[in-house]
Amino acid sequence: MHLLRLNFAVALSGFRRYATYRVATAAGVFTNTVFGFILAYTFIALWHERPHLGGYDQSQALTFVWIGQAMLAGAALMGGGFQDEFHERIRNGDVAIDLYRPVDLQLWWLASDLGRAAFQLLGRGVAPLAVGALAFDLALPSSPWVWLRFLLAVWLAVVVSFALRYLFALCGFWLLDATGLNALSTLLSLFFSGMLLPLTVFPGAFGEVARLLPWSATLQVPADVLLGTHPGGSAAGLAFQAGWALVLLAAGRALQTAATRKVVVQGG
C-alpha cells in the first residue's frame, strides 16, 4: 500500500513536471498536427490507388495517422521521456546512489514515465486527434467500451515502450557513449511501431515478422484495438501487449541486476 502510494506520487510529479511547459506543449501540438496533415494526404493518395490496403478503408487509414500523432509524444515513439536523464545519471555515476535507494529503480522510472506519458497523451494527444477528426472523415467508434479497451491498450503501449527504452538505457552501463544506442532505439521504434506506415501494409513475411515484434505493441496494436481490426479480436491484441510488457520488464529486471553487480564490483 505504501509502495503504491509512493509510486503514485512519483508518477504525479512526472505529470506535473511536464505540465509546466505550456508553450512547449502548444508548440508540440502544432507540429504533430502539421505532420498529421502531411501524412494524411499521402495516405489518401495511397488508399486512392489501393483501396483496402492493409485491411483498412480510407477513413480507417486516416484514423491510424491521427492516432499515431496523438500517441507520438505519450508513448515516446521518437524517444524522449526518461532516457536522457537516466543516461546522464549513468554517465556521471549518480545512478550508483539510485541503486542503493529502498525504492526499486525500474519501478521508480516506470512510475515517473507513466506520469509523463499521462500528461503528454492529454496535453499533446487530444488536440491533434480532435483537429484530425474535424478535418477528415475518421472511423472513430461510438461505443464507450471500445474506447475503454483503447485506453487500456494505450496504457500497455506506454509500459511496453518504457520497458524497451529501459533495456536500451541500461546498456549504457557497458557502453559509455550511449548516443548511438539511443539513435538505434529511436530508429527501431519509428519504423516497427507503425509510425511511418501501418505494419499491415508491410509486404509478405517481413510484415508478419514486424507485426510480432514488441514495437508493434506501442502503436499498431492500440490503433487496431480502436479500429476493431486486430486479427483475433481486441482481447488478443491486449494479451499480446501484456505478454511483451511482462517479458521486457523481466528482461529489464535481469539486466538491472547485472548492472548493479557491475557497479558494485567496479565501484561505479
Partner: peptide
C-alpha cells in the same frame, strides 16, 4: 539509417502500388 527510414516507407508504399499521385 534514421534518415533512410522515410525512403524505406516510400519503397514499401510502392511495393503495393505503381504510382502515387
Amino acid at each position: 539509417a534514421t534518415t533512410f527510414l522515410d525512403f524505406a516507407a516510400i519503397m514499401i508504399m510502392f511495393s503495393q502500388v505503381d504510382a502515387l499521385g
